[in-house]
């Protein structure tokens, strides 16, 4: 009797802030001026959508991989610290995480600008004669997104790594594995659930990125979220925008299912119970 009451507030919030808008978006996308399939037809025929959708997937994928690549060693390092010092490192990771995405994005704009910190340094060091263009490039978008998402990667991975039995790596060593092979054959496979969880989170978050690609990438590096914004604000086309929102949601679901399938539950929860 009590349990349903406990989740009731959450369900109510979920209903108000997810189900209702979702149903509304469904309604809009299938009741546009051009008939029930106007949104779908646009999606199928628009090369703009196709290109931006692919670009978004590519961006999400590369950002996810870069975050994992940078976050994994950092997480290893933090997880390897004594518990008393781990807190300090985690605080250092969390500090930027608690800073608003907008602030961090604008800061990148200051760094990457034509007369920004990076160009000034390059010129001062004599590595470049004139300002290079960093703003509104794929590099800027990747930098901004990686910086924002890296804490997510590190926190997720540290969570899994600190749960691991450190004795397993020692066991591998004494049984004949070099440090590298102990990592490769034992540590890395055991952190797979963490890698999968982090990848899932990072990919889904990347798919929906809006502010950072808009401010650092500009209109030449639009993501699906930016295209939805363009549809609503410039083209006044809510039908296509809603249809795209549904595609984004579907992509997210497919990504989750795919990863779940690639890494079944058995290994996800295969601790030394």
């Amino acid at each position: 009797m009590v349990a349903p009451l406990l989740v009731a507030p959450l369900l109510l919030l979920f209903a108000i802030f997810f189900v209702v808008p979702f149903v509304e978006i469904m309604r809009i996308s299938f009741s546009g001026q051009g008939g029930a399939l106007a949104g779908a037809t646009w999606l199928m025929s628009s090369s703009l959508f196709a290109v931006i959708f692919l670009n978004t997937l590519k961006l999400a994928l590369t950002v996810t991989l870069i975050c994992l690549g940078l976050g994994y060693p950092a997480a290893c390092f933090i997880a390897g610290q004594p518990a008393s010092q781990r807190g300090i490192y985690l605080a250092l990771v969390l500090l930027p995480f608690w800073t608003s995405v907008l602030v961090r994005t604008y800061t990148w704009a200051l760094v990457l600008g034509r007369e920004g910190l990076l160009n000034a340094s390059l010129i001062w060091l004599g590595l470049s004669d004139e300002p290079q263009r960093f703003m509104f490039t794929p590099l800027a978008v990747h930098l901004g997104m990686v910086q924002i998402l890296l804490p997510v990667a590190i926190l997720t991975l540290v969570g899994v790594m600190t749960e691991l039995d450190p004795g397993l790596a020692r066991a591998a060593r004494v049984l004949g594995a070099s440090p590298w092979r102990a990592f490769w054959h034992v540590y890395l496979p055991m952190t797979k659930p963490g890698i999968v969880a982090a990848a899932m989170l990072l990919f889904i978050l990347s798919l929906g990125f809006y502010i950072t690609p808009a401010l650092l990438g500009g209109p030449r590096h639009r993501t699906i979220a930016n295209l939805i914004d363009l549809q609503v604000h410039q083209m006044n086309d809510w039908t296509s925008a809603s249809a795209m929102a549904l595609v984004l949601l579907a992509t997210t679901i497919v990504a989750v299912v795919l990863l779940r399938w690639l890494v079944p539950d058995r290994t996800l929860h295969g601790g030394a119970g």
Partner: peptide, 14 residues
């Protein structure tokens, strides 16, 4: 013409 031209514009930018 805004809707059509905006879409073309966005595609042209890419």
């Amino acid at each position: 013409h805004r809707q059509k031209l905006t879409e073309r514009w966005a595609a042209w930018l890419l």
